[in-house]
Amino acid sequence: MSTAGQRVKEVRKRRGLSQRELADASGVSLSTIRKLEQGERETARLETLRKLAHTLRVPTMRLAHGRNPEDPDAGTVDRWEAVRNALERPPVVLGLDDEVPTVSGVRAALRETEPLFSGDQFAALAVLLPPLLRDAEALGPEGRSVRVRLLQLAGWLMVQTRQFGAAETALERALDDAADRMEGAATVNTLCWLLLRQGELGKAYDLAVKWADETEPRMSRATPAELSTWGWMLLRVSAAAVRNSQPGEAEDALRYATAAAIALGREYAPENDFLRTFGPTTVKLKAAENAGVIDRPDMVLRIAERVPVFSLKPTSNNRNRHLLDVADAYAKTGNCADAFEKLEQIKAGSPEWLPNQRYARDVLGRVIGGRRTLTTEMRTMADAVGLPL
């Protein structure tokens, strides 16, 4: 755990202040600030830290103790605690006077909430999701289908926000209740993503291969939904393989996914399900991602030239991940201006998505690395992605 002095120094530099400027603005002596930052004093009186915190525009407790203040979630109430509780604890038994949820009512509420998932409205979901999960659980067997859909979305959200334990709980429950192979595959798609984010490459690969085999359609009469499902399983196979130094398997899986996309001929979302949107553009996005994984920025930029990224929704996570790949490629090839422009583009479209992306911090680090002075826009971006300066 960092000391109070280290936290003061990190936030001070992030704000672009010298030690003397901080002393003048806060009323704390320059000598005290120097001793704190140099480790000669382990901490300071709470009143001193309050003055520094007020000047640095952070809560006092960020300087006094706790996690690194540059952690984007530090010093804030854990917004996902209520969601985790709703997923992991049985619902409260309803009393005789309680209004009992209905399948039609919960389905309508879920339908109204889905745009918040596709639009990365995390703050709103943190409030609305817990009661919705409890209502869905209270439906019993007749509410199976709406409950599975809600658990799929909740699992995706928990992966997105790095709540991996809660994600696994939601997705395993959704998979247990899946009515058929297609519904199960929709859940497994996110399960594979969870395993990839956890670094469980072998497990992700084996699971994706298993379900790719089980969902492979007869191409001559495959439905769009079947092609989309199979295509996504192949993309997960490719993603796991390329990260696990299996280039041949990665290329093979991507080639089959391309065949599925060509057969579709367009971007297709089964039942308007944004999680399963698949087609030629999606495959190109994932091909660029693979190129980034193997450190081929030149290939990323070549593929990006053929991607109609502006046809995708600004909050599309596949689009945003692609823009990060492009930004990273620009940064690696020395084009920091265009790299920063891509970060700004993501921030404008998905301001709640960006802080959850450690990749964005890596990219911004490359953009500003070695610079002696930072622009106001760069400091603002560092705040947005949680990058210590």
Rank of each mutant, 00 (worst) to 15 (best):
M1K: 11
A4L: 08
Q6V: 15
V11K: 10
A25L: 13
L30H: 13
T32V: 13
T32R: 09
G39R: 03
E40C: 07
R41N: 14
E42I: 11
A44D: 07
E47G: 03
R50W: 12
L52E: 07
L52Q: 02
L56G: 04
R57W: 01
V58K: 10
P59N: 12
P59C: 09
L63E: 08
A64I: 09
D71A: 11
A74C: 08
G75C: 04
G75M: 00
G75L: 01
E81M: 10
A82M: 06
A82N: 05
E88G: 09
P90G: 08
V92P: 02
L94T: 06
D98K: 04
E99R: 10
V103E: 05
S104P: 04
R107G: 00
L110F: 13
E112N: 06
D120N: 15
Q121A: 13
A123D: 11
V127M: 01
L129V: 11
P130S: 06
P130K: 01
P130Q: 07
P131F: 07
R134A: 09
L139H: 05
G140I: 05
L157T: 08
V159T: 08
Q160D: 14
T161E: 03
T169N: 11
T169W: 00
T169P: 06
A170F: 02
R181T: 13
E183W: 02
E183Q: 13
A185M: 12
A186C: 11
V188G: 10
V188P: 12
T190L: 06
R197E: 14
R197K: 14
Q198Y: 04
G199T: 11
E200C: 11
A204M: 09
L207E: 01
V209Y: 05
K210G: 09
W211S: 01
E216F: 04
A222L: 05
A225W: 08
E226P: 04
S228W: 05
W230M: 01
R236D: 00
V237F: 06
S238I: 01
N244S: 11
P247E: 10
P247A: 09
A250Q: 05
D252L: 07
A260V: 07
A261K: 08
I262T: 15
G265D: 12
Y268A: 11
A269N: 06
R276I: 04
F278S: 13
T281F: 06
A287R: 14
V293M: 01
I294K: 12
D295W: 02
R296N: 15
I303Q: 02
I303Y: 03
R306E: 10
R306N: 07
K313H: 06
L324Y: 07
L324K: 07
T333P: 03
N335Q: 13
L343W: 03
Q345K: 13
Q345P: 03
I346R: 08
I346E: 00
G349R: 02
W353P: 00
W353G: 04
A360N: 05
D362R: 14
V363Y: 01
G369Y: 10
R371N: 13
T376L: 13
M378N: 02
T380N: 15
V385N: 03
L387N: 10
